[in-house]
Simulated assay, not measured.
Amino acid sequence: MIFRIWPEFLNTLQAGVQRRILPELWDWVFLPVLEAPSWVVPAVLGAVLLAGLARRRG
């Protein structure tokens, strides 16, 4: 989905992660997230936020 919207961003992101942080981080973290269906990342973030709210109230 990101490639359709902004393809240059992926090249810049990959180069930045591999050069400045850790080359393996691209393969271990970023690539699986980018290959997941586009609804997975917002769903996981929403679940984490809901769990945080439930924990705070309980």
Results as ranks from 00 to 15, higher is better:
F3Y: 00
R55C: 03
E8L: 13
M1E: 08
G58Y: 07
M1F: 08
V33I: 15
F3W: 00
F30A: 11
V41P: 00
E8G: 13
P7F: 09
L34Y: 00
L10T: 11
P7R: 10
V48G: 05
V41C: 06
L45D: 02
L34V: 03
I2N: 02
F3C: 08
R55Q: 09
L50V: 12
G46C: 05
G52Q: 11
F3D: 14
L45S: 06
T12N: 07
L10Y: 10
R56W: 05
P37C: 01
I5Y: 03
A36T: 10
P37I: 01
I21F: 13
A54Q: 06
L49M: 07
A15W: 14
R4E: 15
A51D: 01
A36I: 01
G52K: 09
A43D: 03
D27W: 02
Q14D: 06
Q14Y: 04
V48Q: 03
R55Y: 04
A51E: 01
A47E: 09
R56A: 07
A15I: 07
R20Q: 15
Q14L: 11
W26Y: 15
R19M: 09
L53T: 11
R55K: 05
A54H: 00
R4H: 08
R19F: 03
P42M: 01
Q14G: 03
V44P: 02
V40E: 04
L13F: 13
L25Y: 07
P23R: 08
M1G: 10
I5W: 02
A47G: 07
W26H: 07
L45F: 03
E8W: 13
W6T: 13
R19Y: 06
R56V: 00
V48P: 03
I2K: 08
R55I: 00
V48C: 11
V44W: 00
R20C: 10
P37W: 05
L13A: 15
R19S: 15
